[in-house]
């Protein structure tokens, strides 16, 4: 363990921890746009600059490992001035269309602009403008809003091992893009969306479907494969508009294309909405009472005539434990047979 002082507060952390991580553990806020604890340190946004006693220059907290006895100052006049300049520079090259931006209310850049009270901008000048949009069906890529934090590029390479995008061009014209400015053609895991601090990467499915303040978030589990990824459903007006995942769970916040974008079936118009009974070869909508009475009478009839073993039940790997428990209990205790199975049990 290593002991250091951050803003006069004694902090004890593991060796190899960065100053930023140590500050987080001590609940000391340092602003950042490009850091994600799950990714390799990058040091690009420069917002986390701090003063370390004995070091000639300010250092980025996200890239600097702690050392025994280190004394860190996370804020002073110069640091705050630089941070403000950085945010102001970013805003000088940003559409600033928060009124219609999907990310408004959940945007790190917007938050920083608010806390630094940046109403005016000393550095207004040329702004990057890109007419062309990406035609892929999942991810809206608005590169005018990109702050080049590199998180999307890193997550795509470091975590997803796909490397579908990288930074191209130089200087002011630097831009995150798929090779040769083609449309994105990747695994569409949407990891990039989940780490983007601004509105540069947005899930197309959620655009125009709800403002942050109206969204209700419900933690649950992905209904697809057996990984059991923790997901958060973003609900607006009884509709799932987005799926996210918190970084502090077994799937570390990562999802696949199905988990992140495969939720539309829930609100599909094809959903069954009423019980159906087949009459003369055609399904007719009936009330629950009619349907349940009918099913119960048929089961009773068959059980009475052929015995309980003439009835079988198939349960589902898609249903909950409670439902599966009830189902086998129904077959065993109510019907009276052990003819219960499910297709995916092997």
């Amino acid at each position: 363990m290593i002991t250091l002082l951050i803003d006069g507060k004694q902090v004890e952390v593991k060796e190899g921890t960065t100053i930023l991580e140590a500050a987080r553990q001590a609940e000391i806020y340092i602003p950042t746009l490009c850091d994600d604890p799950r990714l390799e340190p990058y040091g690009a946004c420069r917002l986390c600059l701090v003063q370390v006693k004995g070091m000639p220059r300010l250092v980025t907290a996200c890239t600097t490992p702690v050392a025994e006895g280190m004394e860190v100052q996370t804020s002073n006049e110069q640091i705050e001035r630089i941070r403000k300049t950085i945010v102001e520079l970013l805003l000088s090259d940003h559409p600033n269309d928060c009124m219609v931006c999907e990310k408004a209310g959940d945007c790190t850049l917007q938050e920083l602009a608010y806390f630094y009270n940046l109403r005016e901008n000393r550095f207004l000048g040329e702004r990057r403008q890109y007419a062309q949009r990406d035609n892929n069906p999942f991810i809206e890529r608005d590169m005018e809003k990109c702050v080049l934090c590199g998180k999307c590029v890193r997550v795509c390479e470091e975590v997803q091992a796909v490397a579908a995008i990288d930074i191209a061009y130089r200087g002011f014209n630097a831009k995150v893009t798929p090779p040769f400015e083609k449309d994105l053609n990747c695994e569409f895991c949407g990891q990039c969306i989940s780490v983007c601090p601004t509105g540069a990467l947005i899930g197309k499915l959620s655009i125009g479907r709800g403002r942050q303040k109206d969204i209700q978030k419900v933690d649950t589990i992905c209904p697809y494969c057996g990984c059991g990824c923790n997901i958060t459903l973003h609900v607006s007006r009884n509709e799932i508009i987005r799926v996210s995942s918190s970084p502090d769970n077994i799937n570390e916040g990562w999802l696949c294309v199905k988990g992140r974008f495969g939720f539309k079936f829930v609100n599909s118009p094809d959903r069954l909405k009423k019980p159906l009974i087949k009459k003369n070869g055609k399904f007719e909508e009936v009330s629950w009472d009619e349907a349940l009475d009918y099913v119960a009478s048929k089961f009773r009839e068959i059980k009475d005539r052929y015995g309980p073993d003439a009835i079988g039940g198939l349960s589902s790997a898609r249903c909950t434990n409670e439902e599966n428990y009830l189902f086998q209990k129904f077959i065993r205790a109510t019907i009276g047979t052990n003819n219960v199975d499910h297709c995916a049990r092997y």
Partner: peptide, 13 residues
């Protein structure tokens, strides 16, 4: 599948 383990655990066998 999301709950193969569970449906097996629950005795749907």
């Amino acid at each position: 599948q999301n709950n193969v383990q569970g449906s097996t655990d629950m005795g749907c066998i």
